[in-house]
């Protein structure tokens, strides 16, 4: 009876470890999938922003809100919160508001430092030059993000599946070692 209980307990523990391992693997895999997806959305919204600025001549706070439509949280927050800060405080410059929002939101996204640098660099000129120049800067940012996206897709193909199986297999290895 006692022997049977201990076997049951061990079995239960093993199942737990395997589940946890699998979960870790999936979470890791999801971060790759999310990153490429968020990058794609970000590029779309920058395209939209470019149109609003260059052809629509929309004022920047409105243009930011319009470009955030169709994007998901937390990414859309970068645009809406910046617009909000500009409308409310009136004490921050555009660059400061942009920077502050990105710092706040970044932790909740699957994006990395390189993309952050691209956006921050773009924030230093956003709004404050003529339409032609704005277009150039926005296109440059899109180009840079696109190359990040291509890399992200490649990484996703390579590592997402790997992590999914690696999590489970790793957990099984641990279980075997422990037995």
């Amino acid at each position: 009876m006692i022997v049977q209980t201990s076997v049951m307990l061990k079995l239960f523990g093993a199942v737990l470890i395997i589940l946890a391992g699998t979960a870790i693997g999936f979470v890791q895999a999801a971060s790759y999938v999310n990153r490429s997806k968020q990058l794609r959305l970000l590029i779309y919204s920058l395209q939209r922003l470019e149109t609003e600025i260059n052809y629509g001549q929309t004022f920047l706070p409105t243009a930011l809100i319009k470009s955030s439509e169709g994007m998901e949280q937390p990414l859309s927050k970068i645009f809406t919160e910046t617009a909000q800060l500009l409308e409310d405080s009136k004490e921050l410059s555009m660059q400061e508001a942009w920077q502050q929002t990105i710092e706040n939101v970044w932790g909740h996204t699957a994006l990395r430092q390189r993309e952050k640098d691209v956006l921050l660099r773009m924030g230093t000129v956003l709004g404050m030059s003529d339409a032609e120049d704005q277009q150039k800067h926005l296109q440059l940012a899109q180009l840079q993000l696109k190359s990040e996206e291509e890399q992200a897709v490649m990484e996703q193909q390579r590592y997402a599946n790997m992590w999914r199986s690696l999590g489970t297999l790793g957990a099984i290895l641990i279980v075997i070692l422990m037995v």
């Binding site: 600025i53 929309t58 004022f59 920047l60 009136k90 555009m94 709004g127 404050m128 030059s129 003529d130």
Partner: peptide
């Protein structure tokens, strides 16, 4: 300089491109 930049941003509603 910073104050002047902020002033310009507010005058133009952060959108110099719309003020050509």
């Amino acid at each position: 300089q910073e104050q002047c930049r902020k002033l310009l941003e507010r005058i133009t509603n952060y959108s110099l491109y719309a003020m050509e």
